[in-house]
Nucleic acid binder design. Sequence first.
DNA 1: GACTAAATGAGGTACGTACCTCATGTCAAT
DNA 2: ATTGACATGAGGTACGTACCTCATTTAGTC
Lengths: 342, 342
Amino acid sequence: MARPTVNDVARAAGVSLATVDRVLNARAGVREKTVERVNAAIEQIGYVRDVTAANLARQRLYQMVFVLPDAPALFVDTLRDAIAEATSSSLADRTEVRIITFPNGNPHALVKSLRALNADDTDGVAIFAPETPHVRDAIARLKSDGVPIVALVSDLPNTERDHFVGIDNIAAGRTAGFLMGKFLGKTGGSVMVLVSSMQARDNVERRLGFDQVMAESFRQIEVLPSIETHDDEGATERLVTEMLRNRPDIAGIYSVGHGSRALVDVLRDHERRESMTLIAHELTKITREALRDNLMDAVVSQDVGHIVRSALRVLRAKSDGRDIVHSQERIRIEIVVRENLI
Amino acid sequence: MARPTVNDVARAAGVSLATVDRVLNARAGVREKTVERVNAAIEQIGYVRDVTAANLARQRLYQMVFVLPDAPALFVDTLRDAIAEATSSSLADRTEVRIITFPNGNPHALVKSLRALNADDTDGVAIFAPETPHVRDAIARLKSDGVPIVALVSDLPNTERDHFVGIDNIAAGRTAGFLMGKFLGKTGGSVMVLVSSMQARDNVERRLGFDQVMAESFRQIEVLPSIETHDDEGATERLVTEMLRNRPDIAGIYSVGHGSRALVDVLRDHERRESMTLIAHELTKITREALRDNLMDAVVSQDVGHIVRSALRVLRAKSDGRDIVHSQERIRIEIVVRENLI
DNA sequence: GACTAAATGAGGTACGTACCTCATGTCAAT
DNA sequence: ATTGACATGAGGTACGTACCTCATTTAGTC
């Protein structure tokens, strides 16, 4: 009944402890046939390495790095808070977390930061950044150095990142579209769409998914072209105000990007506030208050706590060459309304 | 920089390792003043016990028990699957899981099962059962034996359970009500409500929340009295079929309980299928398919995987007398629609 | 069969903590 | 001053694994 140990493996394989150790830790100097015999024994008696004992013996300290932009969007702050919270309890799993911030929209600064990292003092990197050629190169270098890398929130599919921690943004856009369609109902109307930037992969994908659903299931609703805000709050306020003045047919607003402060500010005291259906992404202080005040109807979000914990789990696993449990690492697309706000 | 150990504490407090050990493990034979000195030193140098090393030394094996009904509702199977999945990886955190099943609606069998448990071979119990006087007594006995207990899915507030792992069911009902109101829109109509049993606390609370929101925000919708199904599929089919025949004003159906198979079966080929708004609880094989097939509009759910993992974490913490991180143990009320189905 | 290189074994220490024993210290009551 | 009770110290072993050294065996080559 008791869990088998390395000594049991040694006995079962008819070799010494030292040989089992060499096999387990992939050290050289063991004949292929012996390796097989040991592995067979491991299989047969169901040995599983005691990771905690191993880490204790190894005096393992995982040194992880999060790379984030200093974008003015509140979502990034939320993410940063989640990292801070994970850090406070990370001591328990021998994980040390550093955060590197790079100026928003400055790929050179980002690349410079990434260049400072190396395999000696970092066991894993989680990156939230747009995919540019420079970033691709920097990631390739880190990978060739043997540093595990995960993309955070926005995927980097054309790089060698080991894993993507975040939601399927097309599906997130589809979800927002479905809700918009259902909420607007038979009457229909037009929908204004605000995106941060058409450079940001997640924004583009959400818009794509939104349009898909609208075309498939809600033909009575007209979706207007995207308005790019570039996270500029002043500009956004002007654009939204003007749009609302000129287009009485607008019945809904879909905020695709990571920040919705300006939009909420405009609408809070607007005369059309009551009749407007508002759907945004990411649960932050702003969207939370807007939901509570019945100003916003739904928020499509992702749990940043999960994202951070998942990123750390995946990086630790990759760093140890272990497999990950995919079902546990799937990040859900959450729908938050006034009533299930926490 | 390195994490302080017991030896550092001993040095800082000016006592021996043995005394620190006595203090840490609450063993007798240490003067009050010395205890204080050691605790001060712990505080000052920021010592945190290495739980993994401690468990290794202690050869700790957490023996946890889940107590579940054999209700025919699919949700219980889903929960059982989640426990099975958690069990497969529980080896890593020295946790052994047993499942005890009791016949649905038979409190005596349940109490008999609980009586068989004792502090010697169980370090924690997670219970999903209705709160009856017998159950209360059984729980009180276990608690007086020093066994940590958490209520699962449905709370047992009048018992001495240490914690409740599950959602706020009033809020869950409110969420369902909000969606129903939004989906039905200005036109309104009547809503049929199906509950498993008015004995089940979670069902009652959901119904309560649903009615609250309807009364507050959607006065144009008439909510009909609850229909009790007692998880009897044949009876449910008859009741629903009849109701739909007699009441052309019904525009929505809210399924409060843990099972929706019969409801889905009736509606799948029903002529009014298209015009009906359907909202149910718990993501199972049945509701999942119904969402996918556009038969159901939304499911208000709770992640059983989280519930199981959270229950185990809480029980381990209680068993060690450690505090729990409440933010991590909060179970979210999830809204699942066709587009964010995983 | 002698030589060499590679493979394996034997045995140790260490990680941070738990838990044990035995010796020695302290203090107050007698 | 002696006794006894209690407090504390010293030092050990153990948990399961990593990693080290050195000796010994084995396999392959000539």
